[in-house]
Design a protein around this nucleic acid. Sequence first.
DNA 1: GGGAGGATGCCCT
DNA 2: GGGCATCCTCCCG
Length: 213
Amino acid sequence: MTEGIERTPLTRDFFDRSVLEVAPDLLGRTLVRTTEAGPVEVRLTEVEAYAGEIDPGSHAFRGRTQRNHAMFGPPGHAYVYFTYGMWHCLNLVCGPEGRASGVLLRAGAIEAGAEWARERRLTARNDNELAKGPARLATALGIDRTLNGEDVVAGPSGPLSVLHGTPLPRDQVRSGPRTGVGGDGAHQPWRFWIDGDPTVSPYRAHAPRRRTT
DNA sequence: GGGAGGATGCCCT
DNA sequence: GGGCATCCTCCCG
């Protein structure tokens, strides 16, 4: 049982950088969610960068609103949103403060507390599917809007924190277009994932929804 | 394994 | 009232 740097939290400075630096650097890091049920740990395998008010794909593109205000706050905090009437997704706010940039956590591998994750993700056919997709990741970790604005670098005793995890060789990082982003933001290669990892979610290009009667 | 379509509620215009 | 940084089921191969 080695107590090395792997188990120490990331610092505020880690997040106080450009989102395009932070996003790939989050791969391989450990996200810890602590509830009364027990802690669940996930090793991040897929993320997407959202560059705030200059990014047509970002929730902050049209400025500050009641929903997205957490993105405009200091880096190292959570931005949790509710979507499609059913799902939550988790972002980590990056610097500098006021730019409203953030990283969407899209997928990961459950490394501890899998029994709690399985209880929340009854439709998962195997453990690779527990956190394969942003809403699945949030569900597996029991994340909802009560965590919006939560400090994730305050320390491992909080409800949500990010640890150093295992360093990832740079040549294992791949990048490509973001999933589900259309319009002017569609072609930016701001999705990052670990090459060949079985927990990375399938890529789906943005498709406009057809009208339903 | 993959494409189509429905679910479902909140936010913003 | 339209659209959503999605997921699940059904159906086809």
